[in-house]
Amino acid sequence: MPSLSSSYPSSSSSYDSVVVALRTAGCVFAEDEARLILAAARTPDEVAAMVDRRVAGHPLELVVGWAEFRGLRIAVAPGVFVPRRRTEFLVEQALAQAPDASVVVDLCCGSGAVGAALADALGPVELHAADIDPAAVECARRNIARAGGHAHTGDLFKALPDALRGRVDILAANVPYVPTDEVGLLPAEARDHEPLVALDGGTDGLDILRRVADEATDWLSPGGCLLVETSERQAPQAVTAFTRSGLTTHLAVSEEWYAHVVIGSHPH
């Protein structure tokens, strides 16, 4: 749990009332959420407004304005995809694959959490983040500023400076991978409060993944790697897409996080 120092001094009565409101709304971790809301709020009115939003079903991260990701506090904003803790596994795999990376690209970056976490672990790197959604890019710009990162708006590789071709050591692409017909089955927090463009991966959920794989070898350095998160069901097709694109491919699985990451290396 992050530090909960607060600019709004909460009394035990206000804490108790927030817990009751959240628990009544069905929040499983009402006590933890109450502490986070009270830590983020500056006035009693802000507490009330945040509780109302949370009770109405807004993701907690969007209510308090940040998400924890690999020990970092990542700023998030309404309309921006909230980073998932399971995606920390993708970051771990990238670091294991390319521990000496000097050029990193966070494609389909959303809040820029992956790029920020990679830069935090690697030290000084040339970091670029890109997304088709201007709101996401603005959010990412804030989160990668400390690492001196550059944020770009555009459709996949079209957003990137041409000078990056053949130089990227880690290409992390947390692409949308929910099949179109299954978006409606997502939890309301995602379905109602996150952008469709960050969720919908096309008919079988792999449209964007295939596009990224098809162009990746033009951008990767010799030995550079592409990493994409997918589902257990989609993993075999994703591996095939990587292999057909000329990448040396393997699948990494975390039982703890229920995470599946396809990793493709550019042949030397």
Rank of each mutant, 00 (worst) to 15 (best):
H268R: 14
S5D: 14
A94P: 00
E232K: 10
F242D: 08
A188S: 14
P99G: 04
R167S: 10
D169H: 07
E46I: 02
D204M: 06
A117N: 01
E68N: 00
A151Y: 08
H260A: 11
A96K: 07
V253A: 08
A129V: 15
R167M: 05
G123C: 03
A136M: 05
V51H: 06
V168G: 00
A213P: 05
R211W: 09
Q97V: 02
T153E: 14
E31K: 14
V114A: 07
E46V: 05
L209I: 13
V168L: 04
A198N: 04
E215L: 10
A130L: 10
L226Y: 12
H250M: 00
S7G: 08
L127D: 03
D207W: 01
L220M: 08
P195I: 02
L199E: 01
A41K: 02
Q97D: 06
I170V: 10
A241M: 11
I37G: 13
E229T: 03
G224K: 03
P222I: 07
A98F: 01
G148L: 07
P187F: 09
A34Y: 03
R54T: 10
H193P: 02
V76R: 02
S17N: 13
R244E: 15
P99S: 04
E182Q: 14
E255H: 14
V82E: 03
V82P: 01
Q234S: 11
L251C: 12
W219S: 08
P187Y: 09
R85D: 11
L36G: 06
V168R: 04
A56K: 02
V125M: 02
S12K: 00
A163K: 12
S5A: 15
A67F: 00
C108H: 07
S102D: 02
L199M: 08
L22A: 11
E138V: 10
A163W: 05
D214Q: 13
L38H: 12
V212Y: 10
T230C: 13
D52S: 15
R73D: 07
I37T: 09
P187M: 11
F29S: 15
P9L: 10
Q237V: 00
Y177L: 01
P161H: 04
G149K: 04
A67N: 01
A259T: 11
I132M: 12
I74A: 06
S11F: 05
A188E: 13
T87C: 08
T230G: 14
A147D: 05
H152W: 13
V197R: 12
V168C: 00
H250K: 08
P99Q: 06
S254C: 09
V137H: 08
L164W: 09
D133P: 02
A117D: 11
T243I: 12
T240F: 13
H150S: 15
G57R: 08
V51A: 01
V125D: 04
V55L: 14
L4T: 14
A151T: 03
S3D: 15
A172M: 08
